[in-house]
């Protein structure tokens, strides 16, 4: 016996053939999972690029910020540009400072609070932009195996109905149907595994960036607070 007759008598078992043999529900599931996989990888690539850029931008800004350059000058440079990350926080805080202080705010305490609020708002906006679409990765990571499993169950159900119809439990009759059904689970896992890994990595990266930005915001808030005190003392 050189070959099992199964391979000859059974239907073709290539991936493409398996896909075309599947029922429409299973096909739909497979196509959906394929789309999810494409979108997942799109997000992964996009986020990786975005986080790299953000890190680079943070480094550059920190370098400029601590280089001893005057804040006024820095603000003038940045205010007319589109800003991201720390620079956005810096610009929003400086704008609030300028608006309130230059018009001669009465209460330094209220000014401090307003600046903090403005920085918080900017930080939240930045984080929102950073972490957007990461939720999709989490969803795919948890749901794709189930969707694939659904396709498998439906496929196996139809293949069992086919067995009942052909009144034969020959492996050659049973195997292709089950193989094509299992393909759905395979695609589901193929989409889910990178999604889960990428979600964990990207969310921890985002967390690190957020910590850096929060640290900068606190530091800048302290600097501004000192400035306010000095200005109040000068006036008095």
């Amino acid at each position: 016996m050189e070959n099992l007759p199964l391979a000859q008598t059974g239907a073709e078992l290539s991936i493409w053939a398996l896909f075309w043999q599947a029922g429409w529900v299973v096909k739909l599931v497979m196509l959906g999972l394929l789309g999810a996989s494409v979108w997942t990888w799109a997000i992964i690539v996009d986020k990786l690029v975005a986080y790299n850029r953000m890190r680079a931008a943070l480094n550059r800004f920190e370098q400029i910020f601590w280089s001893g350059q005057s804040l006024e000058e820095l603000y003038r440079n940045l205010s007319d540009r589109k800003t991201t990350g720390m620079s956005a926080i810096f610009v929003s805080a400086m704008r609030e400072w300028k608006k309130s202080f230059e018009k001669g705010a009465k209460s330094p305490l209220a000014l401090q609070t307003r600046i903090d609020k403005a920085m918080d708002l900017a930080l939240t906006r930045e984080m929102e932009r950073l972490e957007g679409r990461l939720g999709f990765l989490a969803t795919i990571g948890s749901a794709a195996p189930f969707i694939g499993l659904f396709g498998t169950v439906v496929g196996i159900m139809t293949s069992f109905q086919a067995i009942a119809g052909s009144k034969s439990t020959n492996l050659a009759v049973v195997a292709p149907g089950i193989a094509e059904a299992l393909l759905a689970t395979a695609i589901g896992l193929l989409a889910a595994i990178p999604a889960v890994i990428a979600y964990n990595k990207l969310s921890s990266d985002a967390g690190k960036i957020a910590v850096r930005m929060e640290g900068f915001a606190d530091e800048f808030s302290a600097i501004l607070s000192r400035q306010i005190d000095e200005k109040v003392a000068q006036r008095a």
């Binding site: 996989s37 997942t40 799109a42």
Partner: peptide
């Protein structure tokens, strides 16, 4: 996003 999507589609293909 465009870059991500295109790379993803190309990779899948």
């Amino acid at each position: 996003m465009k870059t991500g999507l295109t790379t993803s589609v190309v990779l899948h293909a």
